[in-house]
Design a protein around this nucleic acid. Structure first.
Length: 440
RNA sequence: CGGGGCGUAGCGCAGUCUGGUAGCGCACCUGGUUUGGGACCAGGGGGUCGCAAGUUCGAAUCUUGCCGCCCCGACCA
């Protein structure tokens, strides 16, 4: 993509409305445009990142054997009345009426909707376990939206749902998501800590939040520092094998959010040198809630004895739009964003400092086209701006690798490769650039 | 929802106390000179001062009501 063709409204100054780093940087880097409180439009650069994250989450759900579906944003009130949550949910739920006066709502979550799909179609235990997910916009009319996209009213979430015959099998599904979440966050360049959590209004008896450490987080977290050293999930993990050993290795180490925290427990279970208390951002949450919805909504199957039983369910969320902000919170400096390779909007930023020099333009065009041909996402700054403006803009938008072409490129036949995270610069012959980048 | 703050050009702000022709920086447009860390000179365009009503000869400025946005708290599958 050439910058002259790209819609990238960067700002020199932070808008007065923004307070935390990710919010400021997203506005300054031209990723977002606010529509109203807690509701945003995604501009090209932001949308690229959102989609990258969405795709990684999708790939990992698919790898874990979860089926993608797409449920509506607008739901009928009826099913929520059946589950009992129409009255319980409160003002956070945006209630609307259609022209016939039918009660509808903009979905804050989809337990009822997915349970309805399930009960219409599944009759036998032989169909179980059944795992479904979708990636869809949600709306919760938060009392006080804040921190830009991190706590918006409209947000993109991946939510998955499991249906099992009994508690044991349901636990296996839970473990599957537990492990796949660890792997997903790893791929996003984040260290997410699973924390025992309260189940809240959704109910049930087992729940973990996945939290990343950040000063701007909304929750206080307490954990055994050794949880950060547990080994990564194997690339080729078999999701149908017994995952309880992995899950238990995490659960054995103390880690809870403030709602479950107890000073005594903490001191008793964690040696002093490993006790850690910080702020964190919740990026995922998994629940097992047994038959809370299947019973009132009559989501039943026949078991092997021919008896009708309610299915055991769980739900598993990842805040996709929130992750964009969370990643920036954990990866930026005073000059701007520093994207992890896996979610960067472009792999390479090519800067031409000599836009009026025919030879320099020729060199850049060649590098641009050749890299593009190899499938690398490249943003080519071909604008007629001063060098300082180009450097600071490229630093701001945070692409991991910059290729800088200036007077030396024409004179000595070299370009600079600059790494955004370290600031390291190395000179490379123009003829070697494409191979160098390709082999990274 | 309790407390606090803000709303003046695309963005950041001054002007409001003490009423009297709406300003600054950046951005933008034109011409010229520049070109390795947010260039310079000259010229130029752009504002129902959030909305409404009131007071006044006269309101960005005073009064009342409303709307919007932000921050702290409470809240947050």
């Amino acid at each position: 993509m050439k910058l002259t063709d790209y819609f990238l409204p960067v700002l020199k100054e932070s808008p007065a409305d923004a307070e935390i780093a990710s919010h400021k940087l997203m506005l300054r880097a031209g990723m977002l445009s606010q529509s109203s409180s807690g509701i945003y439009s995604w501009l090209p650069l932001g949308l690229r990142v959102l989609k990258k994250i969405e795709n990684i989450v999708r790939e990992e759900q698919d790898a874990a054997g979860v089926n993608e579906i797409l449920m509506p944003t607008i739901q009928p009130a009826d099913i929520w009345k059946e589950s009992g949550r129409y009255d319980d949910y409160g003002k956070e739920m945006l209630r609307i009426k259609d022209r016939q006066g039918r009660e509808m709502l903009f979905g804050p979550t989809n337990e009822e909707q997915v349970t309805d799909i399930f009960r219409r179609t599944v009759r036998s235990y032989k169909e179980l376990p059944s795992l479904l997910y979708h990636i869809q916009w949600k709306f919760r009319d938060e009392l006080r939206p804040r921190f830009g996209i991190m706590r918006g009213r409209e947000f993109l979430m991946k939510d998955a749902y499991s249906f099992d015959l009994d508690k044991e099998s349901s636990r296996a599904s839970y473990n599957k998501f537990f492990v796949s979440y660890l792997k997903t966050f790893e791929r996003l360049g984040l260290k997410a800590i699973p924390m025992a959590a309260d189940t809240g209004p959704i109910g049930g008896d087992m729940s973990h939040e996945f939290v990343i450490i950040s000063d701007t987080g909304e929750s206080d977290i307490y954990f055994d520092n050794r949880i950060l050293n547990l080994t990564n999930i194997d690339e080729n993990i078999q999701y149908n094998s017994d995952l309880s050993t992995i899950v238990e290795s995490y659960q054995d180490l103390y880690s809870v959010a403030d709602d479950k925290f107890s000073e005594d427990d903490f001191n008793l279970k964690v040696p002093e040198e490993f006790r850690k208390h910080t702020k964190g951002i919740e990026v995922g949450h998994i629940f097992n809630f047994a038959t809370k919805y299947s019973e009132p909504m009559k989501a039943n199957v026949l078991n092997s004895n021919g008896k009708t039983v309610p299915v055991h369910m769980g739900s598993y969320g990842i805040g996709i739009s929130r992750l964009v902000g969370a990643i920036i919170e954990s990866s930026h400096d005073e000059n701007g964003i520093i994207w992890p390779n896996s979610v960067t909007p472009f792999d390479i930023g090519l800067i031409n400092l000599k836009i009026k020099d025919f030879d320099a333009v020729k060199i850049c065009e060649k590098i641009y086209l050749e890299l593009k041909d190899t499938g690398i996402d490249i943003l080519y700054d071909n604008k007629d701006d001063s060098p300082g403006a180009k450097f600071s803009r490229m630093d701001l938008i945070g692409l991991p690798i910059q290729i800088i072409c200036g007077k030396n490129s024409v004179k000595d036949g070299t370009v600079e490769i600059k790494y955004r995270n370290s600031g390291d610069v190395k000179l490379i012959n123009i003829s070697d650039v494409v191979n160098f980048i390709k082999n990274k």
